[in-house]
Design a protein around this nucleic acid. Sequence first.
DNA 1: TGCGGTACTTACCTTTTCGTAAGGAGGGTC
DNA 2: GACCCTCCTTACGAAAAGGTAAGTACCGCA
Lengths: 123, 123
Amino acid sequence: MARGSRRGPYICGIDAGLDVVSGKWKGLILWELDAHRVRRFAELRRGLPGVSEKMLTQHLREMEQDGLVEREVYAEVPPRVEYSLTEHGRTLNQALGPLGAWGVDRIRREGSEKVDVAEASHS
Amino acid sequence: MARGSRRGPYICGIDAGLDVVSGKWKGLILWELDAHRVRRFAELRRGLPGVSEKMLTQHLREMEQDGLVEREVYAEVPPRVEYSLTEHGRTLNQALGPLGAWGVDRIRREGSEKVDVAEASHS
DNA sequence: TGCGGTACTTACCTTTTCGTAAGGAGGGTC
DNA sequence: GACCCTCCTTACGAAAAGGTAAGTACCGCA
């Protein structure tokens, strides 16, 4: 986990910003949650092809601790848990907008037409 | 290394953007290089407290392959190597600006006064 | 002649991260 | 009554990332 490594006295803001999104699926989780507003565990799982249940819960827990996502549990008969972005999560997502645009440019530069760039016009 | 893991068909631009800056020191290297325009190996090393020579060369090589930094070797008697950002490196750094600002806010929220936030007003 | 400085490379080891597979509690379906 | 669904948790291991330390080669300085 990112728990022990950094979280440290950060040297600059980029340091602190990168720290909370470092993790194989965190960027995608942020994207999914921003696009759909509210998602259940199984919905997120289906939206992130290839993610394991372990990694998903692990990342969601970390992002919850970091104040990025909110977790609401409904004490119902089939358990229902809904995830959504907090205010900080939404602002983080906005802050990632330019990076996303840069990434799309980079994909274009590399000439990877295999990637659906139109879908990637996130934020 | 990030070499084998992703670099893959990216799902969105954020994915691609995060991929090139994932690495313990890449954000800082970008910052140092942007702040000083040109830096030699030993200068970078001194500017990044705690980095090992291995990690520094490794990260610089990766960032060179990614087209972010330029490496100029002067065939002099004491070897001299100068690193600087390419155009793509500079635009990436600008794209990281909002994330850096978000990170500074986050540090403030956590009340970590141990970090020199004034220094962190990067980009 | 031994030390420090230039910029690395290499080998080895530890830590961190990620994946696989299984279990589990409680209910609905066939 | 066996199997599916919900949302996880746990154990085990492999892979990746990172750290430590040494070696390389050449030079200047004392």
